[in-house]
Design a protein around this nucleic acid. Structure first.
Lengths: 188, 188
DNA sequence: TTTTTTGTATACCTAAAGGTATAATAGTTG
DNA sequence: CAACTATTATACCTTTAGGTATACAAAAAA
């Protein structure tokens, strides 16, 4: 692993557990076994480092999401696949997903909120499209895409936030339960 | 309004829009028209200020929540009242609730995460008790309280997070929609 | 083989953070 | 009125933050 990769890994670890503001460049270079100029050589600034960090695993998430959210007639299957995609991605990229969660609820004027907004929006857009397509077959969903997207992300992220330290819980069973409850409510 | 109150108001405003780490004591005292020793006289430290800030409106929330979450036989009514309680509280205490949201998704090792954990847990506990009581009348909810609490908070906070800048949207209609969907799923 | 680029370390800079020593003022209590 | 307590301002402290000027070694290009 070269120095650049080492820095990215360390930054991911530290930022994920403490947040961007609580981790200094010095902390990162110390833990990576390099010095500041090395970091600045590769990333130019703290912001540059964070941007590259966010970018690094994001396309992976979007790619998977596009596959599972690609509705073509079977609503329960699509919902379940999408829940599983989120759970699996979060399980396999715990540190990264923790950052994504943290960014999603950052105050609006926060410096880092802007850096990440496009990423969050893209995820929402993908789900919104999914629900819109679903509405063509299920009339009762018509016009509700936004609400559905918000509910869906809310439930998913709430579970992930809770179980991120115990990722074994984010399994197929829970994914099924969550999908089922989302579709049929708490009585069923 | 005395200086202490002025400081609290300013801190609430600034922290709510930027997060704790992005706002310095200097920013707060400048905007309050006082000087540092005044702030330190009343609050001892940044942490002390934040603790008092969190405390200031928290009991209000818990009080209301205890009333609406007090299940006594009518599940849909209780759910709906509780959703409305959250929406109304968030609407009437936007800055405060924004901080609560932000704290809920902070990385675990973050300095401020600890300060706020008990508050978040108390809210979860109240809802958990509500769902447990409900399960005595609705057998199919039995043993699901934790999942129900997580889903419930997830959906509620996701909506609030989205509409906090446009709080007119957090109205009774949306509360009804959210309650209904929570109970009966997206098909209904 | 010379030259240039890439990568890295030492040592430093400036700004801003949280916090305080000291002293003055105002109000309260004896 | 005297003593004391609560409240405030000036000016300062220390630490840490992000970032950089300079110099040097290795590798790639000429």
């Amino acid at each position: 692993m070269d120095n650049k990769e080492k820095i990215l890994q360390t930054a991911l670890y530290l930022y994920s557990n403490n947040g961007f503001d609580s981790v200094g460049i010095q902390d990162i270079v110390d833990r990576s076994g390099v010095t500041k100029p090395t970091l600045y050589h590769y990333f130019n600034s703290k912001e540059g480092l964070i941007e590259e960090l966010l970018d690094s695993q994001y396309h992976n998430l979007i790619r998977r999401l596009n596959i599972s959210a690609n509705y073509s007639g079977d609503l329960p299957l699509t919902i379940n696949k999408t829940v599983k995609t989120f759970f699996n991605f979060a399980k396999n990229n715990r540190e990264y997903y923790r950052i994504l969660l943290y960014l999603q609820y950052l105050p609006v004027d926060n410096r880092w909120s802007e850096v990440s907004r496009e990423y969050i929006l893209k995820i929402f857009k993908t789900l919104d499209d999914m629900f819109e397509k679903m509405a063509t077959h299920h009339g009762n969903l018509k016009g509700k895409n936004k609400n559905l997207t918000v509910s869906f992300m809310g439930v998913i992220n709430s579970y992930i936030n809770l179980y991120l330290n115990d990722p074994g819980k984010l399994n197929e069973d829970l994914a099924f339960t969550v999908s089922h409850q989302f579709m049929h409510g708490i009585y069923a």
